[in-house]
Design a protein around this nucleic acid. Sequence first.
DNA 1: TGAATTAAAAGAATAATATTCTATGAACGA
DNA 2: TCGTTCATAGAATATTATTCTTTTAATTCA
Lengths: 153, 153
Amino acid sequence: MNDLDRIDYKILNLLQTNSNLTTKELANKVNLSTTPVFERVKRLEKNGYIKKFVAVLDAEKLDKGLTVFCNITLKQHTREIGHKFVKDIIAIKEVTECYNVSGDYDFLLKVMVKDMKHYQDFVLNHLGEIKNIGSAHSTFVMGEIKNTYSVPI
Amino acid sequence: MNDLDRIDYKILNLLQTNSNLTTKELANKVNLSTTPVFERVKRLEKNGYIKKFVAVLDAEKLDKGLTVFCNITLKQHTREIGHKFVKDIIAIKEVTECYNVSGDYDFLLKVMVKDMKHYQDFVLNHLGEIKNIGSAHSTFVMGEIKNTYSVPI
DNA sequence: TGAATTAAAAGAATAATATTCTATGAACGA
DNA sequence: TCGTTCATAGAATATTATTCTTTTAATTCA
């Protein structure tokens, strides 16, 4: 399954920091010629180690400067209600991440909005519309200390 | 500040989903020729709307399949202790995100590790080494419902 | 309203890079 | 030792990025 060597890991680490590196630049950094590097990257994509390439945007500049972690419990835990909740959540643009979690709550949502007024709107008009939510507890991000956008390898 | 038109937003949305699109492909999707699209992307980078381009890796395949949200309080809240904590946290590879948050805890960490054994190791050998941690409360991710890797625009 | 000015876009030309192809050399097993 | 396999290097080609020039559209101001 995981048949990667040290060079593959180095390539992955470089690309998850900056995917604008050319094959030639990558090749220099791992001390190979362009061909093997090109083939390694293609193989890493094909085998699913690289899921996709994306642009990372500046949330602040795009008026989504407020991040809130929203902990949610469901009233009941039947399969139907769970599925319905998941379906509804996926449809809400402001929810950028959603996890089924252990502990006091059932789901943890990461929500990105412009400001507190918009978060209020999110809670009232989006969460409020979803049935079977038992409770919602919001944790507001005051400062971002670290955000790697990467997998620690 | 934010002087983007509808086409800029469309380009940003396309690129934060797939930055492998060529200028020509982007141009087709927004009904322009390659030149203005090329210039728009460069402008979006230059003005900071696009922070960087990265590869998104598959955590599971890279043996980092366990994600844990770790809530932390500090024993004291002096500036020195806070700075020291931040410095220590940034140095820990497994902590992929860290936020200063409101509520019962001071910091929220997203931690990515292989499995529970490695998380135990993280708590004992990494968190355990950091001074002035008052309490740590772990929330384990059992399932990923949604993960957009993008800003909702 | 209409000419002048500016900004944005199109199209063509060039430069750089990605991608493919062929050949070389090392590692391994018979 | 010989033949086989594999990864790499180097060269050739195809695509794409990037720049330059021209055209169009929009805006401003008389």
